[in-house]
Design a protein around this nucleic acid. Structure first.
Lengths: 108, 108
DNA sequence: CCGTATACCTATGCCAGCGAGGTATTCGCC
DNA sequence: GGCGAATACCTCGCTGGCATAGGTATACGG
Protein backbone atom coordinates (compact mmCIF):
# COMPACT_ATOMS: atom_id res chain seq x y z
CA UNK A 1 0.00 0.00 0.00
CA UNK A 2 1.01 3.63 0.30
CA UNK A 3 2.23 3.74 3.90
CA UNK A 4 4.04 0.71 2.45
CA UNK A 5 4.96 -2.53 4.16
CA UNK A 6 3.95 -2.98 7.75
CA UNK A 7 0.68 -3.61 6.06
CA UNK A 8 0.80 -7.31 5.25
CA UNK A 9 -1.83 -9.18 7.16
CA UNK A 10 -3.46 -6.01 8.42
CA UNK A 11 -5.60 -5.60 5.34
CA UNK A 12 -7.88 -8.52 6.17
CA UNK A 13 -8.79 -7.33 9.63
CA UNK A 14 -9.35 -3.79 8.34
CA UNK A 15 -11.75 -5.11 5.72
CA UNK A 16 -13.64 -7.18 8.26
CA UNK A 17 -13.89 -4.17 10.53
CA UNK A 18 -15.17 -2.03 7.66
CA UNK A 19 -18.22 -4.24 7.22
CA UNK A 20 -18.81 -4.87 10.92
CA UNK A 21 -21.62 -2.29 11.09
CA UNK A 22 -23.38 -3.51 7.99
CA UNK A 23 -22.83 -4.39 4.33
CA UNK A 24 -20.47 -2.25 2.30
CA UNK A 25 -19.26 -2.57 -1.26
CA UNK A 26 -15.61 -2.96 -2.20
CA UNK A 27 -14.91 0.51 -3.41
CA UNK A 28 -16.46 1.99 -0.27
CA UNK A 29 -14.35 -0.29 1.90
CA UNK A 30 -11.21 1.06 0.26
CA UNK A 31 -12.42 4.61 0.77
CA UNK A 32 -13.29 3.92 4.40
CA UNK A 33 -9.79 2.62 5.14
CA UNK A 34 -8.20 5.64 3.52
CA UNK A 35 -10.49 8.09 5.29
CA UNK A 36 -10.45 6.66 8.81
CA UNK A 37 -6.68 6.53 8.70
CA UNK A 38 -6.39 10.05 7.33
CA UNK A 39 -4.60 8.86 4.20
CA UNK A 40 -1.95 7.02 6.20
CA UNK A 41 -3.18 3.74 4.69
CA UNK A 42 -4.16 3.61 1.04
CA UNK A 43 -5.31 0.26 -0.25
CA UNK A 44 -4.40 -0.47 -3.84
CA UNK A 45 -7.24 -1.96 -5.84
CA UNK A 46 -4.92 -4.73 -6.93
CA UNK A 47 -4.74 -5.72 -3.27
CA UNK A 48 -8.29 -4.91 -2.23
CA UNK A 49 -10.34 -6.98 -4.66
CA UNK A 50 -8.24 -10.14 -4.41
CA UNK A 51 -8.46 -9.80 -0.61
CA UNK A 52 -12.25 -9.58 -0.76
CA UNK A 53 -12.44 -12.70 -2.92
CA UNK A 54 -10.08 -14.47 -0.57
CA UNK A 55 -12.20 -13.63 2.47
CA UNK A 56 -15.31 -14.69 0.62
CA UNK A 57 -13.73 -18.02 -0.31
CA UNK A 58 -12.83 -18.52 3.33
CA UNK A 59 -16.45 -18.02 4.29
CA UNK A 60 -15.78 -14.90 6.32
CA UNK A 61 -17.63 -12.58 3.96
CA UNK A 62 -20.80 -13.05 1.90
CA UNK A 63 -21.33 -11.07 -1.27
CA UNK A 64 -24.48 -9.79 -2.93
CA UNK A 65 -25.15 -7.38 -5.76
CA UNK A 66 -27.04 -4.25 -4.88
CA UNK A 67 -27.48 -0.58 -5.68
CA UNK A 68 -25.56 2.34 -4.24
CA UNK A 69 -27.18 5.59 -3.10
CA UNK A 70 -26.50 6.98 -6.54
CA UNK A 71 -28.11 4.04 -8.30
CA UNK A 72 -24.99 2.22 -9.43
CA UNK A 73 -24.45 -1.52 -9.41
CA UNK A 74 -22.07 -2.60 -6.67
CA UNK A 75 -21.14 -5.83 -4.94
CA UNK A 76 -21.97 -5.62 -1.26
CA UNK A 77 -20.07 -7.63 1.34
CA UNK A 78 -21.33 -8.53 4.78
CA UNK A 79 -19.87 -10.45 7.69
CA UNK A 80 -20.85 -14.08 8.08
CA UNK A 81 -21.06 -15.43 11.65
CA UNK A 82 -17.67 -17.06 11.08
CA UNK A 83 -16.39 -13.70 9.85
CA UNK A 84 -17.56 -11.96 12.99
CA UNK A 85 -15.86 -14.54 15.18
CA UNK A 86 -12.73 -14.21 13.09
CA UNK A 87 -12.82 -10.43 13.44
CA UNK A 88 -13.00 -10.71 17.22
CA UNK A 89 -9.98 -13.01 17.25
CA UNK A 90 -8.02 -10.82 14.85
CA UNK A 91 -8.70 -7.71 16.92
CA UNK A 92 -7.24 -9.45 19.96
CA UNK A 93 -4.28 -10.60 17.88
CA UNK A 94 -3.66 -7.08 16.61
CA UNK A 95 -3.68 -5.72 20.14
CA UNK A 96 -1.20 -8.32 21.34
CA UNK A 97 1.01 -7.69 18.34
CA UNK A 98 0.78 -3.92 18.56
CA UNK A 99 1.56 -3.91 22.25
CA UNK A 100 4.50 -6.27 21.81
CA UNK A 101 6.09 -4.22 19.04
CA UNK A 102 5.50 -0.89 20.76
CA UNK A 103 7.08 -2.22 23.93
CA UNK A 104 10.10 -3.53 22.06
CA UNK A 105 10.52 -0.29 20.14
CA UNK A 106 9.96 1.82 23.22
CA UNK A 107 7.22 3.76 21.51
CA UNK A 108 4.65 3.01 24.17
CA UNK B 1 6.98 -15.85 12.41
CA UNK B 2 5.09 -17.32 15.33
CA UNK B 3 2.59 -14.55 16.05
CA UNK B 4 2.30 -14.97 12.30
CA UNK B 5 1.60 -12.36 9.69
CA UNK B 6 1.28 -8.79 10.80
CA UNK B 7 5.00 -9.18 10.98
CA UNK B 8 6.18 -8.32 7.49
CA UNK B 9 8.17 -5.14 7.44
CA UNK B 10 8.34 -4.98 11.21
CA UNK B 11 11.33 -7.28 11.41
CA UNK B 12 13.78 -4.72 10.04
CA UNK B 13 12.94 -2.01 12.53
CA UNK B 14 13.04 -4.50 15.40
CA UNK B 15 16.52 -5.59 14.34
CA UNK B 16 17.74 -2.01 14.10
CA UNK B 17 16.32 -1.28 17.52
CA UNK B 18 18.01 -4.36 18.96
CA UNK B 19 21.44 -3.01 18.08
CA UNK B 20 20.71 0.60 18.95
CA UNK B 21 22.45 0.36 22.33
CA UNK B 22 25.53 -1.34 20.97
CA UNK B 23 26.70 -4.27 18.83
CA UNK B 24 24.85 -7.55 19.11
CA UNK B 25 25.25 -10.80 17.22
CA UNK B 26 22.49 -12.36 15.17
CA UNK B 27 21.44 -15.11 17.52
CA UNK B 28 21.23 -12.63 20.41
CA UNK B 29 19.09 -10.30 18.30
CA UNK B 30 16.60 -13.10 17.73
CA UNK B 31 16.58 -13.90 21.43
CA UNK B 32 16.09 -10.24 22.33
CA UNK B 33 13.04 -9.94 20.10
CA UNK B 34 11.50 -13.05 21.58
CA UNK B 35 12.22 -12.00 25.13
CA UNK B 36 11.19 -8.35 25.01
CA UNK B 37 7.92 -9.35 23.40
CA UNK B 38 7.30 -12.11 25.92
CA UNK B 39 7.24 -14.78 23.20
CA UNK B 40 4.58 -12.92 21.20
CA UNK B 41 7.08 -12.51 18.37
CA UNK B 42 9.40 -15.37 17.47
CA UNK B 43 11.78 -14.74 14.60
CA UNK B 44 12.57 -17.75 12.47
CA UNK B 45 16.24 -18.09 11.63
CA UNK B 46 15.31 -18.41 7.97
CA UNK B 47 13.94 -14.90 8.22
CA UNK B 48 16.48 -13.43 10.62
CA UNK B 49 19.76 -14.11 8.85
CA UNK B 50 18.63 -13.05 5.39
CA UNK B 51 17.26 -9.86 6.98
CA UNK B 52 20.61 -9.13 8.61
CA UNK B 53 22.42 -9.58 5.30
CA UNK B 54 19.87 -7.38 3.60
CA UNK B 55 20.36 -4.58 6.11
CA UNK B 56 24.10 -4.95 5.82
CA UNK B 57 23.93 -4.69 2.03
CA UNK B 58 21.83 -1.56 2.40
CA UNK B 59 24.54 -0.01 4.54
CA UNK B 60 22.36 0.22 7.65
CA UNK B 61 24.33 -2.35 9.60
CA UNK B 62 28.04 -3.13 9.77
CA UNK B 63 29.26 -6.59 10.68
CA UNK B 64 32.36 -7.77 12.46
CA UNK B 65 33.45 -11.11 13.92
CA UNK B 66 33.98 -11.22 17.63
CA UNK B 67 33.76 -13.39 20.70
CA UNK B 68 30.77 -13.91 22.97
CA UNK B 69 30.95 -13.92 26.76
CA UNK B 70 31.33 -17.68 26.59
CA UNK B 71 34.17 -17.51 24.10
CA UNK B 72 32.28 -18.49 20.98
CA UNK B 73 32.75 -16.97 17.52
CA UNK B 74 29.85 -14.73 16.56
CA UNK B 75 29.19 -12.08 13.96
CA UNK B 76 28.43 -8.78 15.63
CA UNK B 77 26.26 -6.17 13.99
CA UNK B 78 26.25 -2.47 14.80
CA UNK B 79 24.31 0.50 13.49
CA UNK B 80 25.95 2.67 10.86
CA UNK B 81 25.11 6.38 10.91
CA UNK B 82 22.74 5.73 8.02
CA UNK B 83 21.23 2.90 10.02
CA UNK B 84 20.60 5.15 12.98
CA UNK B 85 18.90 7.73 10.79
CA UNK B 86 16.85 4.98 9.21
CA UNK B 87 15.83 3.68 12.61
CA UNK B 88 14.59 7.11 13.63
CA UNK B 89 12.49 7.35 10.49
CA UNK B 90 11.13 3.83 10.86
CA UNK B 91 10.15 4.45 14.47
CA UNK B 92 8.11 7.45 13.38
CA UNK B 93 6.58 5.39 10.59
CA UNK B 94 5.64 2.64 12.97
CA UNK B 95 3.95 5.10 15.30
CA UNK B 96 1.95 6.62 12.45
CA UNK B 97 0.97 3.18 11.19
CA UNK B 98 0.15 1.81 14.60
CA UNK B 99 -1.97 4.80 15.48
CA UNK B 100 -3.81 4.69 12.16
CA UNK B 101 -4.67 1.01 12.44
CA UNK B 102 -5.66 1.21 16.10
CA UNK B 103 -7.94 4.13 15.34
CA UNK B 104 -9.57 2.30 12.44
CA UNK B 105 -10.03 -0.85 14.48
CA UNK B 106 -11.26 1.05 17.49
CA UNK B 107 -8.66 -0.57 19.71
CA UNK B 108 -7.20 2.71 20.89
C1' DC C 1 30.64 -38.62 25.70
C1' DC C 2 26.37 -37.33 24.35
C1' DG C 3 22.46 -34.34 24.19
C1' DT C 4 21.21 -29.56 24.35
C1' DA C 5 21.93 -24.89 23.59
C1' DT C 6 24.48 -21.74 21.02
C1' DA C 7 25.70 -19.68 16.55
C1' DC C 8 25.80 -19.52 11.82
C1' DC C 9 24.00 -20.49 6.97
C1' DT C 10 20.95 -21.23 2.49
C1' DA C 11 17.65 -23.24 -0.90
C1' DT C 12 12.86 -23.83 -1.97
C1' DG C 13 8.31 -22.39 -2.23
C1' DC C 14 4.30 -19.77 -1.06
C1' DC C 15 1.53 -15.85 -1.24
C1' DA C 16 0.34 -11.02 -0.16
C1' DG C 17 0.64 -6.77 -2.05
C1' DC C 18 2.22 -3.54 -5.98
C1' DG C 19 2.02 -1.80 -10.53
C1' DA C 20 -0.26 -1.59 -14.57
C1' DG C 21 -3.33 -2.59 -17.30
C1' DG C 22 -8.56 -3.12 -18.63
C1' DT C 23 -14.19 -2.26 -18.78
C1' DA C 24 -18.47 0.26 -17.78
C1' DT C 25 -21.46 3.67 -15.69
C1' DT C 26 -22.74 8.14 -13.66
C1' DC C 27 -22.08 13.04 -12.74
C1' DG C 28 -20.72 17.72 -13.38
C1' DC C 29 -19.38 21.09 -16.44
C1' DC C 30 -19.00 23.76 -20.48
C1' DG D 1 -24.33 17.09 -26.73
C1' DG D 2 -19.85 15.83 -25.28
C1' DC D 3 -15.97 15.03 -22.26
C1' DG D 4 -13.28 14.40 -18.23
C1' DA D 5 -13.37 12.86 -13.52
C1' DA D 6 -15.09 9.92 -10.18
C1' DT D 7 -17.22 5.62 -9.19
C1' DA D 8 -17.10 0.57 -9.31
C1' DC D 9 -15.41 -3.61 -10.76
C1' DC D 10 -11.67 -6.88 -12.46
C1' DT D 11 -7.04 -9.61 -13.58
C1' DC D 12 -2.20 -10.50 -14.79
C1' DG D 13 2.69 -10.55 -13.79
C1' DC D 14 6.27 -9.44 -10.71
C1' DT D 15 8.73 -8.78 -6.52
C1' DG D 16 10.18 -9.84 -2.13
C1' DG D 17 9.57 -11.30 2.76
C1' DC D 18 8.81 -15.04 5.48
C1' DA D 19 8.16 -20.15 6.70
C1' DT D 20 9.88 -24.63 6.12
C1' DA D 21 13.42 -27.56 6.28
C1' DG D 22 17.39 -28.70 5.87
C1' DG D 23 22.74 -28.24 6.96
C1' DT D 24 27.57 -27.24 9.84
C1' DA D 25 30.25 -26.43 14.01
C1' DT D 26 31.41 -25.33 18.82
C1' DA D 27 30.71 -25.08 23.95
C1' DC D 28 28.60 -26.79 28.09
C1' DG D 29 26.39 -29.82 31.50
C1' DG D 30 25.63 -34.30 33.31
Amino acid sequence: MAGSDLFTGTLDVLILKAVSWGPRHGYAIGRWIRETTADVLTVQEGALYPALHRLERKGLLAEEWGLTDTGRQAKYYRLTPAGRAHLRAELARWQRFQHAVSTALGTV
